[in-house]
Amino acid sequence: MATISVKLKIWRQDGPGKPGRLVDYTADTVSTDMSFLEMLDVVNEGLIKKGEDAIAFESDCREGICGACGLVINGVPNGPVRGTTTCQLHMRSFKHGDTITIEPWRAKAFPVVKDLVVDRSAFDRIIGAGGYVSFNTGGAPDGNCLPISKDVSEAAMDMAACIGCGSCVAACKNAAAHLFTSAKITHLGLLPQGQPERYTRVVRMVDQMDAEGFGNCSNEGECEAVCPKEISISGIARMYRDYQKAALKG
């Protein structure tokens, strides 16, 4: 187990709409087995000991599934390792003496709450607009009365794996939410259960996405590159197609 020390430049901001700035810290004797967030825990313990306000950042599962933890690390959402959430990044990805800049997601639709914490409730509203199959508890037929081919079900699962972290928005120069929205649309659109509402769903979700102030997609693929779950942008094309078909249907 090796030990390194790193310099940190961390975004501090007291609250929404308040001015923010990068503040310098150092983290000494960092074990390379530590996770990135554990390194921040140690920095915070130092601050707390001195009675100073700890750096606010979010995390919960710390195993890459809840989607709470994203940070922009040296300009890249979730840092240097592909297919990884911030909580799964380890200090062995850094070298002794490195300077690491840590900032929150930046997007109009994700206002900063404090330091590294942002408000992602826009994502919940996009799901609320149509990211579901409408039926009430209790009325379901037997689970096996609807065979679904393995390929289709696996493809749906690839999209359903989205953790709603917002890395895609953070990476996009237009702060677009197309990858997030299309993942849900594709997950449900591929499955037979999702067919009855397929076209109303796409219209409602895309309209909500626009209403939240997310930007347009200019096909750069930055979102796919940083997605910790490696969700494919192929869903975006499908979302457009369905949206156009829905428009034709009126």
Binding site: F135, A140, S149, K150, A156, H187, L188, L191, Q193, G194
Partner: peptide, 22 residues
């Protein structure tokens, strides 16, 4: 037994066999 039916109806992509069943 009802839980599985409920979740399938919601579109939960449970693992399936090649014949398409759960």
């Amino acid at each position: 037994v009802s839980i599985i039916d409920q979740c399938v109806a919601q579109g939960v992509p449970f693992a399936r066999e090649y014949g398409g069943l759960l």
